[in-house]
Amino acid sequence: MFSLKSSHVGALAFVGAISMGWAQEAQIKRVLSQAQLEYKVLNSGNFALVFQTEGGRTQIVFINSQMEDLKGYPIIKLWSVVYQGKTLDKLVLGRLLLYPAQYKIVGSEITEEEGQVFGVYTIKIPFSAFTPNMAKALCEMLANMSDKSEAELRKGANDF
């Protein structure tokens, strides 16, 4: 007779988490395809979408394939890099915190990796609102806004 042990529960939870991850990834893929947005799946599993912006420039928008869980509500996160440097001066910090406040749905954050600091604009919304139309509008808004900030903060550079 099979008896359930705590190790089994752990294994089942792990399998459950993996299958939930796959399900979420598939849900996001479905929305992006319906929105006719081209994407690449990175090694991390995250999605990368390249947008043409003003003046022949481009901007990459990333979408995390794993959603956060807010008390049972899946939250999807879109992000785009606007700044990279060894440090962040006050001008950059102010820009990251003041600029998104004027926009409808965008926020900002910083992250450090291999001695470099990255400034990022983000959109975090409940997945239920991530319809094909909304996905397209949000990705384009984030790309345009991020590219504009990148050009201003990095003297016209077009790296992201």
């Binding site: 962040l88 910090l93 102010g94 990251l96 915190l97 900002s108 954050e109 910083i110 975090k124 919304i125």
Partner: peptide, 24 residues
């Protein structure tokens, strides 16, 4: 707003599932 406080806000934003610190 001191620089270290702005850095704190932006770092905290990364760990938030939803929402962000902003300035006005």
């Amino acid at each position: 707003v001191p620089s270290d406080l702005m850095q704190k806000m932006l770092s905290e934003n990364r760990s938030r599932k939803i929402g962000n610190w902003e300035l006005m």
